[in-house]
Write a protein that binds this DNA or RNA. Structure first.
Length: 648
DNA sequence: CAATAGAGCGCT
DNA sequence: AAAGCGCTCTATTG
């Protein structure tokens, strides 16, 4: 028998805590309101709901709106274009009297800080959010994040709580997406939603937990749960950022954009929307009679390719105006100006404005630190993703981009440690093969691109290393092609050689590295023979790929490339996750990990702890306890720098 | 007016 | 016939 209720007084709350304390596990969910919604450790919790055997409750603490609209008032507001308008705002009845957060969290402390298993869907958000009410202290493990368990059990489906519940129990609840803005909805509606999230999350927990064992995923799952402790800390600590650098860059880019814009209009002879791909297509590819420049388009957009395949008629806007296409006409004044504009507009819009001028309620920088969301299950391969903002695509290549990276810097009396694995994907490949030239090269301390060039071009590695950067760059393209399954066209483009040359080198590569191709074929073949086609990574993460059995050649080939890449990419992801856990288990107090970018981690450490932190990070990433998992030597580069941009 | 799709581009 | 992401802008759709 399930009892469900809204908790509004201390007596009820005490009863709830006593009930939950009798069980070894519970599930909970929080709702939060601006400011800082979505940033645990800074946000304001307005509801917490809990579920366990026989009971689900929700506890409101400061929901304003009642259940009915009792009138309306008129409000003035400013539109995006700066116009002043009137709008009618509904007036709500008042909500029932609720407990204060201090009362609620004091009563919940024995439960949240007990050794009971704590479940939540996207647990770092929930666990991290309540920490604020305990002076930053974080409710301890054991954890069960049902988002993580759901993804591990099947990475190819929608794994949000709502879609999972719909798939499992055919229950569609909260069709209005109440959780996105609880403060906009009635007390009754939020109560129902919040209670449902916990009650159904509890069911998902009971569903997933035994399946984790059944599918042999327990060790991997335990690792992911331990990793969440680091995720929670990273989210709370944030990543120090120098606003002054961004503000300076904003001024520079604004001025540059005005110039680029003028140059474009001058060269084209008229004005148009520089950010509109269709208008750009008209301008660059359009005939001169119609005011275009009459250049010959280079490649189709994705939509254009699809149209062509369906035999539909192509229009001028089906031709891509991306930077690659425009680069063919470098030297043309309009093209050069357009390329400059696109580059600077991208940098300003995505990396400067987004950080300095976020939408209201969407504050990204708090006390000089940006609090991104790192999602350890962000990619189907097991890689991390990052969002709000994405710290994994901060520019590094162009000088303008590098300036953005320089805004990420250590605070006074601190330094950043930037550590990245050397050639981690090729290390994984050599490890799995277990022998061959790549494998031997790693043991001799020769980097894989040099080995590849030496064998493909029949030169001594020393000669390649010292005098032939050109051949090494071709070798880089060839190795890239292995891991990603690229064809001659891509290799040619990467290495800036002809497609025929690329073909020739790929053929030689196949002859010199037969074990690589045999291994790749073996992985794909083995995967296809499984009852459910899949492969596994270093630490047993599963990549399921039913399309391996597709009769459609194109689909099947794509699946083969994805499968093989997933094994390599996923194993590299396993390794860095393990390294992060090892860092967490053993690092100097006062040093904090602040970000991870696939094969790299960043640590913020007081200057007096730099050497100690370096040693801990080195051990975490390549020490014996992790090296024993990999049959070739792991390498890592560590730089202690003031600014992220100084590491490369 | 809000939500979504497509194009394009930043990173490993 | 290049793996994996997230963000911003425009244009379209509801």
């Amino acid at each position: 028998m399930l009892s469900r209720s809204i908790v509004l007084d201390t007596e009820h709350l005490d009863h709830v805590v006593r009930h939950f304390s009798r069980h070894g596990a519970f599930f909970f969910d929080i709702e939060s309101i601006p400011p800082y919604r979505g940033i645990p450790a800074h946000n304001t919790v307005s509801w917490i709901s809990l579920a366990t055997y026989g009971m689900a409750v929700t506890i409101p603490m400061g929901h304003i709106k009642g259940d009915r609209i009792i009138g309306e008032r008129v409000e003035m507001y400013e539109t995006k274009t700066g116009k002043i308008r009137k709008r009618k705002i509904p007036v709500w009845s008042t909500a029932p009297e609720q407990l204060r957060p201090s009362q609620v969290f004091e009563a919940l402390e024995p439960l949240l800080f007990s050794d009971r298993e704590k479940g939540a869907h996207s647990l770092p958000m929930d666990v991290g959010s309540v920490a604020k009410y305990y002076g930053g202290k974080i409710p301890p493990p054991p954890y069960h994040d049902t988002y993580t368990s759901s993804v591990l059990l099947d990475e190819n489906r929608l794994n949000g709580l709502k879609p999972r519940i719909k798939q499992l129990y055919k229950i569609a609840y909260d069709t209005e997406d109440t959780g996105r803005r609880v403060e906009a909805h009635s007390f009754r509606k939020v109560a129902r939603y919040s209670y449902a999230d916990s009650a159904l999350g509890w069911l998902l927990y009971k569903h997933n937990d035994p399946l984790i064992d059944k599918q042999g995923l327990r060790d991997l799952f335990d690792m992911e749960m331990e990793l969440l402790e680091e995720v929670i800390d990273m989210a709370a600590y944030g990543d120090p950022v120098d606003k002054a650098v961004l503000e300076e860059l904003e001024r520079e880019l604004t001025a540059a954009l005005v110039e680029h814009e003028a140059r474009i209009y001058r060269a084209v002879g008229r004005e148009f929307n520089l950010n509109s791909p269709p208008q750009k297509a008209q301008v660059f590819w359009g005939p001169k009679e119609q005011g275009g420049l009459g250049l010959k388009p280079v490649k189709l957009t994705d939509g254009g390719v699809k149209k062509k395949r369906r035999g539909e008629k192509l229009t001028i806007t089906d031709w891509s105006t991306d930077a690659d296409s425009l680069k063919k006409y470098k030297g043309h004044p309009a093209v050069d100006a357009m390329l400059d504009y696109q580059r600077d507009d991208k940098l300003k819009g995505t990396y400067v404005d987004a950080l300095l001028h976020p939408d209201e309620d969407d504050c990204l920088i708090i006390n000089g630190r940006v609090h991104a969301r790192f999602n350890p299950m962000g990619a189907r391969t097991g890689r991390w993703s990052s969002s709000s903002p994405n710290l994994q695509n901060i520019p590094v290549r162009t000088p303008q981009g590098k300036k953005i990276r320089s805004a990420f810097r250590a605070e006074d009396d601190y330094l950043e440690l930037i550590a990245d694995y050397g050639q981690i994907e090729l290390v994984m490949l050599a490890h799995f093969i277990g022998y061959g030239a790549l494998f031997d090269g790693f043991w001799k301390g020769i980097d894989p691109h040099t080995i590849t060039a030496a064998l493909v071009f029949a030169l001594p590695p020393d000669e390649v290393k010292a005098n032939r950067p050109d051949l090494r760059s071709i070798a880089k393209g060839l190795n890239f092609a292995i891991v990603y399954g690229a064809g001659p066209d891509t290799v040619a483009e990467m290495a800036e050689i002809t497609v025929n040359e690329a073909r020739k080198h790929m053929k030689k590569h196949r002859a010199e590295f037969p074990e690589v191709y045999a291994y790749k074929a073996h992985v794909i073949d083995t995967a296809r023979r499984q009852k459910y086609p899949h492969t596994t990574t270093l630490l047993g993460r599963v990549r399921r790929m039913p399309e391996l059995r597709s009769r459609d050649d194109e689909k099947r080939s794509a699946a083969e490339r994805q499968l093989f890449n997933s094994k390599i990419q996923g194993s590299a992801a396993d390794l860095i996750k393990l390294a992060m856990i090892r860092w967490r288990r053993n690092h100097p107090a006062g040093a904090h990990m602040t970000r991870t970018v696939h094969d790299e981690v960043g640590v913020h450490t007081p200057k007096h702890l730099v050497e100690e932190s370096k040693a801990a990070l080195l051990d975490a990433m390549v020490g014996p306890g992790i090296q024993k998992l990999v049959k070739v030597p792991l390498t890592v580069d560590i730089h202690a720098v003031e600014r992220w941009s100084d590491a490369k």
